[in-house]
Design a protein around this nucleic acid. Structure first.
Length: 462
RNA sequence: GGCCCCAUCGUCUAGCGGUUAGGAUCCAUGGUUUUCAUCCAUGUUACAGGAGUUCAAGUCUCCUUGGGGUCACCA
């Protein structure tokens, strides 16, 4: 069975890159009807935050990627890691290193001065003397000193990393707390991972983790390293260009299905297909089709996708989502009409909410440019006539087409162009020159409110 | 700097030795629409550069250039 996982460290919110690797992992598991596990990497007690953890979980909930089983917290598994450390120590596969931090820094500076790769020199690897007092040792694992560490990456292909790129790295800190590369290998193995899908930035952790797998005699999973997402200029993603909290996308009015669709196409493709429902993603996703190259983050397509998903979303569901954007139209008797009239005009839920509010609120002022253009000439008279006709036909007006008929009548009786009534009417109803169709707006407002707005506009024309 | 990875329109990408190099987005133009938006149509724009291999190279090899990653008692 395919088992994948997402393993964030709770040191900050979940951002777009993390969400994408999580999505890839989740899709892989869903596709194979396997399991997608969630693990919180909180071995560094000093840098963890409860808030960050909550935020990450919340983001997952929002996009609807559910994990299987309980969330695994590494901080609760220290006993387990300790056992493995002791085992390696006993087997002579790991050793205590009494080098002080100062000595380490010194060594590093020396190496840097000589333009060498900075690495631990193994001075305590075969140490048998009396250890220096007052130094709490760290535990280092014995990495191979020659040869090559080889693994096949599902995305990059065969990787060969020279053993001297991997030093005897620390697996337990001076305070006994285990370190990242050690616990990741153990947990991935114990949790039964078959596919490890993670960011490219972990590529060089892989040989280190393989050292741990080998020392402990654990089976290797398949590794898949996904290239990074950069900003539009191809530079590292910063908060300014999108490395913000995933939840910020919700605030900006993006739909989770749009965000996921956007992300799945960043570094993955299925021919020319652009639109993927969650079901299609699951059906079609294969990590083998993940791109080797990094991709640049650009909002244009996300916006387009978002507009697409808004347009195609059932009104009932849309109304439910809109509540969080300050628009409560659930139970509104013209809900269908209202959303049909506005959903093609909002690329985000925020914009859609604005469009709806534009219709629902009586304009308190008229856009200067629009009113100057629309309220000139005989606009006042035309509006008054139109209002009178609405009153006259009041009881028969229900649908947009009913209102349209009245407009038709007015236009033909007065022998004027459609614009003569359209423009002033639009500004009267919305306060501006742009927006939804007049027929729809009037049908939503009803005769009373429509007339109120027209009369208000007539007053304003004086 | 060492090591590693990557390179097709501005952006996301298709391509897997023979294509008029395709799609999407963006942008522009036209059409539909009483406005805006939607929708539809059309158009501009790409194989980073240089050597090879081959009858034939965006596709294979090498070099250059550019970008990215990584070198912790962080994850």
């Amino acid at each position: 069975m395919t088992v994948t996982r997402f393993a964030p460290s709770p040191t900050g919110y979940l951002h777009i890159g993390g969400l994408r690797t999580a999505l890839f992992s989740w899709l892989t598991a869903q596709h194979d009807k396997g399991e997608f596990l969630l693990r919180i990497e909180d071995t560094d007690m000093a840098r963890n935050s409860e808030e960050a953890k909550e935020a990450i979980l919340k983001a997952f909930e929002w996009v609807g990627m559910s994990h299987d089983g309980e969330v695994v917290y590494q901080s609760k598994r220290f006993d387990l890691y300790k056992k493995f450390i002791d085992q390696l120590l006993a087997e002579g596969k790991a050793y205590k290193c009494y080098m002080s931090k100062e000595e380490l820094t010194e060594l590093r500076e020396e190496q840097m001065a000589k333009k060498e790769r900075t690495r631990y020199d193994g001075r305590y690897r075969d140490f048998t003397g009396t250890p220096p007092a007052e130094i709490n040792p760290v535990i280092r694992i014995k990495a191979p000193q020659e040869g090559t560490i080889t693994f096949v990456d599902g995305v990059k292909g065969e990787m060969n990393i020279s053993a001297d790129e991997v030093d005897d790295f620390v697996i337990a800190r001076a305070d006994g707390a285990p370190t990242y590369n050690f616990v990741v290998a153990i947990d991935d193995a114990l949790m039964g991972l078959t596919e490890v899908i993670r960011g490219d930035d972990h590529l060089y952790n892989t040989p280190k983790q393989i050292v741990v797998y080998n020392a402990l005699g654990l089976d290797l999973p398949n590794f898949n390293h996904v290239a990074m997402i950069n900003n539009e200029q191809g530079k590292k993603l910063s908060k300014r260009d999108g490395a913000t909290d995933v939840m910020a996308y919700k605030e900006m009015g993006y739909l989770p299905e749009a965000l996921l669709n956007f992300l799945v196409r960043l570094g993955w493709s299925h021919g020319d297909q652009e639109i993927f429902s969650i079901e299609e993603m699951i059906e079609l996703f294969d990590p083998k089709n993940i791109n080797k190259s990094s991709s640049n983050y650009n909002l244009d397509k996300l916006l387009w996708l978002n507009a697409h998903y808004i347009k195609n979303m059932p009104n009932e569901k849309l109304a439910g989502m809109l509540k969080e954007y300050g628009v409560n139209i659930e139970g509104h008797d013209k809900l269908e009409l209202l959303l049909d009239a506005t959903k093609e005009r909002g690329k985000t839920l925020v914009e859609l909410a604005e469009q709806i509010n534009l219709i629902l609120t009586t304009p308190s002022e008229y856009d200067a440019k629009a009113s100057k253009k629309a309220f000139k000439g005989e606009a006042k008279e035309v509006l008054a006539d139109f209002a009178a006709m609405l009153r006259e036909w009041d009881k028969t007006l229900h649908l947009p087409c009913d209102y349209h008929e009245v407009m038709d009548k007015l236009v033909s009786e007065k022998e004027i162009g459609f614009g003569k009534i359209g423009m002033p009417l639009r500004v009267s109803l919305l306060g501006s020159m742009t927006g939804s169709g007049l027929d729809e707006i009037m049908a939503i407002l009803g005769v009373d409110e429509t007339v109120v707005r027209i009369e208000k506009a007539i007053e304003a024309i004086e």
